[in-house]
Lab assay of single mutants.
Amino acid sequence: KLLSSIEQACDICRLKKLKCSKEKPKCAKCLKNNWECRYSPKTKRSPLTRAHLTEVESRLERLE
């Protein structure tokens, strides 16, 4: 599967780190437990900047 097509777990399953069936409108866990089942939009991760990478590398060197 391509990364862009990976389905996201519902908010509660993601928060509780449960295996989500990803069914809509309610996944199996939410249906069974009568929880409100919501699927928040995916958040875009910002790409690493060179400055951040350099900072992490220098912190790693100090720890070694």
Rank of each mutant, 00 (worst) to 15 (best):
S40C: 05
R59D: 00
C10A: 04
K22E: 04
A9R: 02
E36C: 15
A28K: 12
D11F: 01
R59A: 09
S46A: 08
E61K: 09
S46Y: 02
E61W: 13
E7R: 08
T54K: 07
K17W: 06
I6R: 04
I6L: 12
E64I: 11
K24T: 15
A51Y: 09
L18C: 08
R14M: 03
L53P: 04
K26M: 14
P41S: 08
W35S: 14
E55D: 14
P47S: 07
K17F: 00
W35A: 15
R38N: 15
K42A: 12
K1W: 03
T54W: 05
K26R: 15
P25L: 05
C20Y: 06
S4Q: 10
E57C: 04
S4I: 13
S4G: 07
S58T: 09
E64G: 05
T49C: 05
C13I: 06
T54C: 09
L60H: 03
P41Q: 09
Q8M: 10
A51T: 08
P41G: 09
E36I: 08
L15E: 11
P25E: 08
C37Y: 07
E61Y: 11
I6A: 11
K44E: 07
E61G: 15
C27I: 00
T49D: 01
Q8N: 12
C13E: 05
C30H: 04
L31G: 14
T49Y: 06
S58G: 13
H52K: 06
L60M: 13
K44R: 13
K42G: 09
C13N: 01
L63Q: 02
K32L: 10
W35G: 13
H52I: 02
K24R: 12
E36H: 13
S5K: 07
T54L: 07
L63S: 00
R59T: 06
S21W: 02
L63H: 00
D11I: 03
K1L: 13
S4W: 09
Q8R: 07
I12D: 12
S4T: 10
L18D: 03
K29D: 04
A51C: 11
L3P: 07
A51P: 00
L3G: 12
I12A: 10
A28Y: 11
T49H: 06
P41L: 05
K44P: 13
P47T: 01
C13R: 08
C13P: 02
K29A: 04
L18R: 05
L18V: 00
E36D: 15
E57A: 01
S40T: 10
S4D: 12
K24N: 15
L63A: 04
R59P: 02
H52V: 01
K22W: 04
E23Y: 03
D11C: 01
K16M: 00
L53I: 04
W35I: 15
L3H: 09
K19P: 06
K1T: 15
S4A: 14
T43C: 14
K19W: 04
S58D: 11
C27Y: 02
R45T: 04
N33S: 15
Q8S: 12
K24P: 08
C20H: 01
N34G: 11
K29M: 07
T43D: 11
K1E: 04
K42W: 08
N34D: 13
S58E: 15
R62V: 14
P25S: 07
E64T: 14
K17Q: 06
L63C: 11
I12P: 12
S46N: 03
E23V: 12
I6D: 08
L60C: 14
K42R: 12
L2C: 10
R59F: 02
E64C: 10
L48F: 05
D11N: 07
L60T: 06
L3D: 15
L53V: 11
T49M: 06
S5G: 10
E55T: 13
N33Y: 12
K19L: 05
P41H: 07
E57N: 01
C20A: 03
L53K: 05
E61I: 11
L15C: 12
T49R: 01
S21G: 10
K22P: 04
H52G: 00
E55K: 10
E36P: 13
D11L: 04
C20K: 05
R62K: 09
R38Q: 11
N33A: 11
E55G: 11
P25C: 02
K1Y: 13
A51G: 08
C20I: 05
S5I: 12
L2A: 13
L3A: 12
Y39T: 08
K24Q: 13
T54S: 13
L48I: 07
W35V: 14
R62C: 09
R14T: 05
R50T: 04
C37N: 02
H52F: 09
R38H: 13
K42V: 09
P25D: 08
E36Y: 08
L15D: 11
L15K: 09
P47H: 04
K32T: 14
C27M: 01
T49E: 00
R14A: 12
E7Y: 04
S40Y: 06
L3M: 11
P41D: 08
E64Y: 15
I6P: 10
W35P: 03
N33Q: 13
A51S: 08
K32P: 04
K44Y: 10
A9V: 08
T54H: 09
K29F: 04
E64S: 13
D11S: 05
L53N: 02
N34C: 15
R45F: 01
C30M: 05
C27Q: 03
S4Y: 12
I12Y: 13
C30P: 01
L48A: 01
D11T: 03
K44H: 10
L48W: 06
A51I: 12
A28T: 12
L63W: 00
L31C: 12
K42D: 04
A9S: 05
E55F: 10
Q8V: 05
K32I: 11
E7T: 09
P47A: 08
S58V: 14
A28V: 12
A51Q: 12
D11A: 01
S40H: 04
P47E: 06
E23A: 14
K32V: 11
T43W: 03
I12W: 14
V56N: 00
N33G: 13
A51L: 12
S5Q: 08
C20Q: 04
T43R: 11
K16G: 00
R59G: 05
L15R: 07
P41A: 11
P47W: 06
R45A: 01
C13G: 01
S40W: 03
A28P: 02
E23W: 08
I6N: 09
I12L: 09
E61R: 11
C37V: 02
S40D: 00
T54E: 13
K44A: 15
A51H: 10
C27L: 00
K22S: 03
K16S: 03
S4V: 11
N33W: 04
I6W: 12
E23F: 07
L48G: 03
L2W: 12
R50L: 07
L3N: 10
T43M: 11
E36A: 14
P47L: 02
